[in-house]
Design a binder for these strands. Structure first.
Lengths: 143, 143
DNA sequence: AAAGATGTAACTGAAACGGTTACAATAAAA
DNA sequence: TTTTATTGTAACCGTTTCAGTTACATCTTT
């Protein structure tokens, strides 16, 4: 399975908020830029708000990013919008046979290895920030 | 989203085939060890066969692993059983607005970064082999 | 021919995804 | 105070994937 497009949409939202910081940023505007429905954006806004990454002005509209972009990592965004049960990247089959020597031990054997892969991926996500996106976006826009 | 349990089931299958190599390994046996349905196993067998990792004896039954376990990586198994469109880990939203400076460039900006994360994860999967699983499983079983 | 296995089609229920409509709640402006 | 613009959220929808299940054709050996 793929990581849902909520992740790239959320990053796109941050890019909009920052790029057009002179204007009030609404869900309609972002929906138009991303190419989706405003309600999708508002649901994402709620997830990002719950994660403490933004503040949303009800009624009047407008979004404020709560931290400098360099202090918001891809992992922060990923965790905010991606719903993986127990934060587990791998879904382990749930009923291995305890009477079989393989079934009884496969979990012990695999858990460490799978956690290591997940941890490596999360470290990589953590090494990229929205500040990097801002910087690269400015370069592309000015081309 | 999570990586499907087909991945851990497939590794479990290899562990069965190797651990019980004295006997003929059938889909019924593996289904019992994994705790699922034989047809699930047979579908996985087809995917692993298509990837060239095993040979399945039709009619008579039995599975042969085509390479030494140390030469089969988690990435081989992952690619064999996980169906991600275009091998892309991240699902990019598909209709960014070309008229918006952000929408027009977001793909350029993110592609490299997302590919890097994916590549890192794949490298980590590639560093673990079924030989490692065999070794650790033997330790656990003999406890 | 019988037995035992794989290969595969067809179906199911559940969950997640992305989207859509509708509307209540809110805040500011007129 | 009314209007306007916006967010918040519930209730759907169609699609896809997942894991499972039944049924049965096919194959190989006995």
């Amino acid at each position: 399975m793929q990581i849902s497009s909520r992740f790239t949409m959320a990053i796109h939202m941050f890019a909009c908020i920052d790029t057009f910081k002179e204007q009030k940023m609404t869900s309609d505007f972002m929906a138009a830029s991303i190419g989706t429905n405003p309600v999708i954006i508002r649901k994402l806004l709620q997830q990002l708000k719950a994660a403490g990454l933004i503040e949303v002005a009800r009624g009047t509209g407008g979004v404020r990013i709560t931290r400098p972009l360099e202090n918001i990592t891809f992992l922060d965004v990923y965790r905010a919008v991606e719903c993986t049960p127990d934060n587990e990247l791998f879904h382990f089959h749930e009923n291995p046979n305890e009477k079989c020597p393989v079934g009884r031990n496969i979990h012990h054997v695999l858990d460490d290895k799978l956690n290591k892969v997940q941890k490596t991926m999360e470290n990589e996500l953590e090494a990229i920030t929205l500040g990097d996106v801002k910087k690269d976006l400015q370069e592309w826009v000015s081309k």
